[in-house]
C-alpha cells in the first residue's frame, strides 16, 4: 500500500521549491464601461428608468384587463382573460426584475470585497466554559444522586404523546374493518348494468368481440357509490366460445362466451380498461400489465402477478346478465392478509 502515498509526477530535482503553489491573490479590478464613460453610465441609467416605467405600465395593463375582459361562457374568452392578465403580470415583474439586475450590474459598485471566515468551532475556552456550565446545571438537578426521578421522568415523557396519538390514530382509520376488502356488493341474481347509466344488459345485445363496462344494479343508489364502484366494477367481454379456454373449476362461470372480469388491476388497482379485440388482451394503461381474456385473464406481461378475479355470471329469465355470486377472491391489489 505504501506506493499509494508516494508522490507522482515528473522527476523532482529542485528540493528548495515549496510543495504547493501559492495563491496569487485577487486579480486586478477591471473597470466597466459605465465606470469610465459618463455617457455609458447615463445610458444605463436611462435603460433602468425605462424598464421600471414599462413595469408600471404592465401593472396598469393587468388591472385594465381584469376589468375590461372578464371570462365569459366560452373557453376562448377564459383563455383571453387569463392571457391578458398574465401578460400584464409578466410585464410588471419581468421588466422590474430586468431593471434591478441591470442597475446592480452596470451601475452599482462592482469592486469585489473580502470578508474573513472564522472556524465554526468555538474556541477552547468557550467550549470548556460551556461544558462546565452544563455540568454545574446537571449537578444542580441532582439527577445523578436521585435516580428515581430520572426513571419516573422518562416514563412520564415517553407516555405523554400517547394521550394525543391514541385518539388520533384510533379515529383516523374509520372502523378499521379491513375485511371489507374481501367483499363487493355482487350477489346471486344481481343484474349487470351499464356503467354509468345503470341500464341492465341483455346477453343477446353483447356482440362477439365487444367489451362492456359494467356496474352492479343499484350501485348509483348507494350513499357513497364510488367506494363500492372502486371494488365492484367489471368488464364484460364476449368471445367466440371456440377461443375461450376455461379452467375446469370455472366451467359454467361464463355464458355463451360472455365472461366478466374485475376491472380493478391486481397490481396497484388502476382500471384495466384497454381491450384489444384481435388478441383478446386486456391492458392496464397505468403500468401496462397485460391480461389474456381468452385464458382466465392470466398475466402475460407487466408488473401484475395474479389474474383478474372472475365474476361468475349467467342470465335471468328475461335474458339479462346476472351474477351467480360475489367474486370468489378479493379484487384489486394484493395485501398482506389477502389469502387469510
Amino acid at each position: 500500500m505504501s506506493d499509494e502515498s508516494t508522490e507522482v509526477g515528473l522527476p523532482v530535482e529542485q528540493h528548495a521549491l515549496p510543495q504547493r503553489f501559492e495563491n496569487p491573490g485577487l486579480p486586478e479590478h477591471h473597470p466597466r464601461l459605465t465606470d469610465v464613460d459618463d455617457g455609458a453610465a447615463k445610458r444605463s441609467e436611462r435603460i433602468v428608468v425605462v424598464l421600471f416605467m414599462l413595469s408600471a405600465l404592465g401593472t396598469i395593463g393587468a388591472i385594465v384587463a381584469y376589468f375590461t375582459v372578464p371570462p365569459g361562457a366560452t373557453i376562448a374568452s377564459i383563455r383571453l382573460s387569463t392571457m391578458l392578465i398574465g401578460f400584464g403580470l409578466a410585464a410588471t415583474f419581468i421588466f422590474a426584475g430586468a431593471a434591478s439586475v441591470h442597475w446592480s450590474k452596470s451601475l452599482m459598485n462592482d469592486h469585489e470585497k473580502i470578508e474573513y471566515r472564522h472556524p465554526m468551532v468555538s474556541d477552547t475556552e468557550t467550549r470548556e466554559q460551556a461544558s462546565e456550565m452544563l455540568a454545574d446545571g446537571m449537578s444542580d438537578t441532582g439527577l445523578s444522586r436521585r435516580g428515581a426521578i430520572k426513571g419516573a421522568m422518562i416514563t412520564a415523557v415517553a407516555l405523554a404523546p400517547l394521550g394525543f396519538a391514541v385518539p388520533l390514530i384510533g379515529s383516523v382509520g374509520g372502523d378499521w374493518d379491513i375485511s371489507k376488502f374481501r367483499h363487493t356488493m355482487w350477489k346471486k341474481g344481481l343484474r349487470l348494468t351499464h356503467d354509468p347509466t345503470g341500464r341492465p344488459i341483455k346477453a343477446s345485445d353483447v356482440t362477439i368481440g365487444s367489451a362492456v363496462h359494467v356496474i352492479p344494479e343499484g350501485l348509483n343508489k348507494l350513499e357513497h357509490p364510488l367506494d363500492e364502484k372502486s371494488k365492484a366494477m367489471v368488464l364484460v367481454i364476449r368471445l367466440d366460445p371456440r377461443d375461450l379456454h376455461e379452467a375446469p373449476d370455472r366451467e359454467g362461470w361464463s355464458y355463451e362466451g360472455i365472461v366478466a372480469y374485475s376491472k380493478v388491476c391486481t397490481h396497484v388497482g388502476c382500471p384495466v380498461a384497454l381491450y384489444e379485440q384481435r388478441t383478446h388482451h386486456l391492458l392496464c394503461p397505468c403500468h401496462q400489465s397485460t391480461f389474456d381474456i381468452s385464458n382466465g385473464a392470466k398475466v402475460i406481461f407487466g408488473p401484475a402477478d395474479r389474474p383478474l378475479p372472475q365474476l361468475p355470471i349467467t342470465v335471468d329469465t328475461e335474458g339479462y346478465l346476472v351474477a351467480q355470486s360475489d367474486f370468489h377472491e378479493p379484487v384489486g391489489p394484493s395485501f398482506w392478509e389477502r389469502l387469510k
Partner: peptide
Amino acid sequence: KQAGMFFIIFGVLALMGA
C-alpha cells in the same frame, strides 16, 4: 440582484400561467 431575480421568476411564471 435578488429582488430582480425574484421579479423575473415571478414574471416568467406569470407568462407560463398565461
